[in-house]
Amino acid sequence: MNDRLDLGDHEQVMSALRRVLGEEGKALTALAASLDDDWVEAVRWMADCKGRILVSGLGKSGIVARKIAATLTGTGTPAFFVHPVEALHGDLGIATRDDILIVVSRSGGNEEVLALVSSLGAHGVRSIGLGAGDDSELARRADIFLHTPMQREACPLGLSPTTSTTLAMAAGDALAMSLLQTRGFQREDFALLHPSGALGRGLRMTVAELMHTGDGIPAISVDACLRDAAVEISGKRLGCTCVLTADGSLAGFISDGDFRRALLEHDAPLDLPVADLMSTSPVTVPADCLARSALRRMESNQPGPIMQVVVLEGDRPVGILHIHDILRAGIRS
């Protein structure tokens, strides 16, 4: 089938998109159902590997192999991509007997890939084949072969690698994520390996990097009235104000929710002393607290989530952190 799409026909284009996604989705479901003991053994080999995971492939399979190597490396398993042709022309020296080779090949019959498996095998390097050809030469030469069964490519011509590359990519993800869980890899480990990325920065970011400080901290005296609190809350635009003793220590906290409740519960609330209305045990965090930990505190607060926390140094407020500051930084709990 190779009918030309009419871009003016919305349903025809939508049908073409859904057909490809549907075929690849079914293939992934079939792959999950077909897993055998070889997959478990492959995870064990990789987890016990004393060297590195070498991942190789040619053409589209090479692109998939690069992604698998990158995912492994980024989740705590040392790995890198090896080009099969370059490896056969002098780069085999990078491999040691402690390494494991993963070869990605749709057909399992590529000569350069097969030569790489045999050459590294002669040096004592164990190999894991990954592909659709369960009766291929790669399946026979590899120490373990992970079959990714498929009926056809999603390409309407049946030619362009589509379903096969999706299956190989997903298989690589499954291996990498299984290793991640085996190693007990945590968010903090991810941050160490991705220090400059948005995810890494978010995982490492502290309250001190986001909080409002100095004149930006809303604060009034413990001797003030609710009218003073209203002015400070409106002026600093953080929906709250700290209440301080004469020496600058934190005595309490007034949120805009506290303010609204006072308006509803009292006939003339603006002249009431804040000492009678403030919370005397607000949620506080230190400046070196991770921002995502502060976010969890805010979201899990009882009896309900809160929008701000007071940042304390000793008993003195040194900042206010608003939940919007955390979310704007792209941090999620």
Rank of each mutant, 00 (worst) to 15 (best):
E299W: 03
V222L: 13
N301G: 07
L250Q: 11
I323G: 03
A27D: 06
D258P: 10
I220N: 03
S164K: 13
L130T: 05
G216V: 00
L203W: 10
G252K: 09
L5I: 14
I217K: 09
H322V: 02
S136Q: 10
G314T: 05
S333K: 06
G172S: 05
D247H: 12
F259S: 04
D271H: 14
I254H: 10
L157A: 10
S249Y: 06
S15C: 07
V13P: 02
P317Y: 03
G129R: 10
I323H: 03
S255A: 08
R261Q: 14
A262W: 08
G200E: 08
I331A: 07
G314S: 10
I217C: 08
L238D: 03
A115V: 01
L180D: 02
G62A: 09
V117D: 01
A268N: 11
K67L: 01
G216R: 14
H212E: 00
A219S: 12
V104S: 09
L159A: 11
L31D: 09
C240T: 08
A208Y: 04
Q181D: 14
D271N: 15
C225H: 11
L31W: 15
K50I: 01
R296P: 00
V55G: 01
F145P: 07
G62S: 06
M177R: 00
L21W: 01
H322W: 03
F185T: 00
A329C: 07
R187I: 01
A251S: 15
D315V: 12
V55M: 02
A69P: 10
V311W: 04
A70F: 05
A132Y: 05
E265R: 13
D143S: 14
G158N: 11
R332V: 15
G314F: 10
D315Q: 12
A262H: 05
S160R: 00
V103L: 11
R260Q: 10
S127N: 02
V20K: 00
L21G: 03
V64C: 08
M307Q: 05
R332W: 11
A69E: 04
D223A: 15
G109L: 09
F190R: 11
A230E: 07
A27P: 11
I128K: 13
T206S: 11
L295V: 04
E137F: 08
V13E: 02
Q308F: 00
D135K: 15
N110H: 06
G129K: 11
G133H: 09
G200A: 09
A329N: 11
C289R: 13
V125K: 03
R18N: 10
D98M: 08
G248R: 13
T165F: 03
D315Y: 03
R260M: 12
